[in-house]
Simulated assay, not measured.
Amino acid sequence: MTTSALKSLGTAALFALGMASGMVRAEAIHFPAGKATFDARCAVCHQAGGKGQDGLAPPLTAYPGHYAASAQGRHQLPDTVLHGMYGEIHVADKTYNFKMPNFDSLSDDELAQVLNYVVFDLNASSHGSAKPFTTAEIKAARAKSMDAGAVYAQRTAVTKALGLR
């Protein structure tokens, strides 16, 4: 396309042209408050976009979507962010061994938003029929007496039940 032809196109048309040609990658963020919390609190270990760090923090781009679509997994995710977790885990044939801190100082709404960002924005293709997390779910999880070791044991059961490794 010539320069004069490009000048005659409006911004919207240029964006559409770029999208159609694969030049522009649009990232739809449905939970911007969750993304902001993730970027401030989680990305230091899990990296931007939840891609993970080899040996330290697993990627968050597949498993959380599967978790959120199952009853057991819907408990696992809030428990993990509220109570932390430690121990060796396996994700997509890689091993990670780190101690995830708890984020119980965040509000129920902040935690629901960050989980929704992870499940629906980072796991767009794997969340199936999962529904967004609510503050009521986080509040119920907060009322449970758990420690990071119990969260780890629960995760082992969830991944086994879902056939994940």
Rank of each mutant, 00 (worst) to 15 (best):
M1W: 06
T2D: 12
T3N: 09
T3V: 14
S4V: 09
L9E: 13
L9C: 09
G10S: 15
G10H: 07
T11K: 14
T11G: 06
T11N: 11
T11V: 12
A12T: 14
A12C: 06
A13C: 01
L14C: 08
L14Y: 01
L14F: 02
L14I: 08
L14H: 02
A16E: 13
L17H: 06
G18W: 00
G18N: 04
A20H: 11
A20D: 13
G22S: 07
V24W: 01
R25K: 15
R25V: 15
E27N: 10
E27K: 12
E27R: 13
E27F: 03
E27M: 06
A28I: 14
A28W: 07
I29V: 15
H30G: 14
F31D: 09
P32A: 07
A33I: 04
G34M: 02
K35R: 14
R41H: 12
R41C: 08
C42E: 06
C42Q: 02
A43K: 06
C45L: 04
Q47A: 12
A48G: 09
G49R: 09
G50F: 07
K51L: 13
G55Q: 10
G55D: 10
A57K: 05
P58V: 05
P58Q: 05
P59I: 08
P59G: 11
P59E: 13
P59V: 10
A62Y: 12
A62S: 11
P64W: 03
H66Q: 14
H66V: 15
A69S: 15
A69W: 06
A69E: 10
A69T: 09
S70R: 07
Q72Y: 08
G73P: 05
G73H: 04
H75M: 11
Q76S: 11
Q76I: 02
Q76D: 13
L77P: 01
L77E: 05
P78H: 05
D79N: 11
D79H: 14
T80S: 13
L82G: 07
L82Y: 06
Y86D: 11
Y86K: 14
Y86G: 12
G87Q: 05
E88F: 01
E88W: 02
I89V: 15
H90L: 06
A92T: 08
D93M: 10
D93Q: 11
T95H: 12
T95W: 08
N97R: 11
F98L: 09
K99P: 01
K99C: 05
M100C: 06
M100G: 04
M100R: 09
F103W: 08
F103D: 03
L106I: 04
D108L: 03
E110Y: 02
E110M: 05
L115P: 00
D121Q: 03
A124T: 09
S125W: 06
G128A: 12
S129A: 15
A130R: 00
A130C: 05
P132Q: 04
P132F: 04
T134P: 00
T134A: 00
T134C: 01
E137H: 02
E137N: 02
K139C: 01
A143E: 12
M146A: 07
M146G: 00
M146E: 08
G149L: 10
A150R: 10
V151T: 07
V151A: 02
A153W: 04
A153V: 10
A153D: 13
R155V: 01
T156A: 14
A157R: 10
V158D: 06
K160S: 12
G163W: 02
L164A: 04
